[in-house]
Amino acid sequence: MKVPTSFTNIPISPSVDKVGVEERVARFQSRSIKNESKRQGLDLVLSMIDLTTLEGKDTPGKVKQMCYKAHHLHDSYPNLPTVAAVCVFPSMVKTAKTALLGTSVKVASVSTAFPSGQSTRAVKLADTKFAVDEGADEIDMVISRGKFLAGEYNFVFDEIAAIKEACGKARLKVILETGELCTLDSVRKASDIAIYAGADFIKTSTGKIQPAATMQVTYTMLMAIKDYYDTTGIMIGMKPAGGISTSKLALHNLVMVKEILGNNWLNNDWFRFGASSLANDVLMQIMKLETGVYQSSDYFTID
């Protein structure tokens, strides 16, 4: 097993050429997913969604409704999977946990002064411990982008390692907020820091900053996961979040995961979509495949 040590003993991140990445991504996007593979793919996508609400105006009522939707995606059509998890603020973890009792849907909580991460280590640790104590199965932390951009990589590394420790049994997703890192070189470096510092998952974005989970960014992060796996044999999960609202884009993400990491990653233990509106588009596509016609969006619930 890996032992998080310090930033200084992790391998140097390779440089990333943006033009080359765009070209590679275009190849993934030219894959044609039809018939049976489309149907299977859409089921996979549903099962990988982290249904998310992260707003200042979130209430217990809103969260409960979303939790119901999480395991009743479209009851008029049987045998659909549930989503993987719901993702809420720490204050809503208990509500969500209660609402999801007896289901396989997990509760993920953002923490560490989400979304900016602009607070002290103590506050971030307390934030994390609170969410874990409330019952969160997964913690979605944000990295300190300010420190990263100031070149204080040791700080970022140590902070992730400290939060990982505070997570206990909860799985840790590390949000890089790639929209603020700006270059793919930085995305790669931040991915490597997060992975070596103890992330179980790396995640693109908070959903509060644009651009969020572009395929270029997700590709770069998947390559970091691939390199780490090739070196250590340890699997790391990936979660693109924000901006994936259509089935087509979601399927192209699966294509990327399949061709880079392989089928072992194609389940919700290792790949997630952070999204709020994706589920209904996928449901709409599934119903189109089953019935041959598109149904109005009013036939799909919006919890």
Binding site: R31, S32, I33, K34, N35, E36, S37, K38, Q40, G41, L44, M235, L254, K258, G262, N263, N264, L266, N267, D269
Partner: peptide, 12 residues
């Protein structure tokens, strides 16, 4: 490690 589903592309 869940059993890997054999998701592959149908002929197109």
């Amino acid at each position: 490690k869940k059993q890997a589903p054999s998701w592959d592309y149908s002929p197109s």
